[in-house]
């Protein structure tokens, strides 16, 4: 997308710069400008892009999977409460997940709209009053990832961040067994 955009930008700038040259070829016919450049060109590019976006988007959706892990995230002004095993265990401002396995985060809010975003683990999703939204994330390798609130939520918005701790298989087992908070 970046390469394509750069090419289009350069093309347009080049066409404009060319218009100012003293010696340049005669202008193409109106049909070339409007039908060719104005209609056919964007329609072709955009159709391809849309199809590509649709396929990628479908792939990112939460789907059934045998090793799926489901956690909950309740946001509030200004705290994140993460729940595991149907709410039996809770952690605050740090979400624990296994690395290399798909994780569904069920998002709710106790007050205003917030959004869950861990830039390196996936897209973002809003937590909306009265609703439950599900976001699929996945960490390729163990580590600590920074998460932020991506929907303006008042005075504490900038400090409404959290951490995601992705464990290796052993670490996840230990966490699930309750050894570590």
């Amino acid at each position: 997308m970046l390469a394509g955009s750069t090419a289009i930008l350069l093309l347009v700038c080049g066409l404009i710069a060319f218009a100012f040259l003293k010696r340049r070829p005669a202008s193409p016919a109106k049909r070339v400008w409007i039908v060719g450049a104005g209609l056919v060109f964007p329609i072709t590019v955009l159709t391809a892009l849309l199809a590509y976006g649709l396929v990628i988007g479908e792939r990112l959706l939460p789907r059934q999977s045998s090793d799926l892990v489901r956690v909950s995230a309740e946001s509030s002004q200004w705290r994140w409460v993460f729940g595991y095993d149907g709410g039996g265990r809770r952690t605050y401002d740090a979400l624990h997940i296994p690395a290399g396995r798909p994780v569904d985060v069920v998002l709710t809010t106790a007050d205003v709209i917030h959004a869950f975003w861990v830039p390196r683990l996936g897209g973002k999703m809003d937590a909306v009053p009265g609703r439950q939204n599900v976001l699929r994330i996945e960490a390729d390798r163990p580590g600590i990832y920074a998460g932020v609130c991506a929907e303006y939520c008042g005075i504490g918005h900038a400090r409404h961040g959290f951490r995601v701790v992705a464990h290796d298989a052993a670490g996840w087992q230990a966490f699930s067994a309750g050894d570590r908070p």
């Binding site: 404009i16 400008w33 450049a37």
Partner: peptide, 13 residues
């Protein structure tokens, strides 16, 4: 895009 290229075409003509 139709407008942008109509404008560029105008510059060219």
């Amino acid at each position: 895009a139709v407008q942008i290229f109509a404008w560029i075409g105008t510059l060219w003509s």
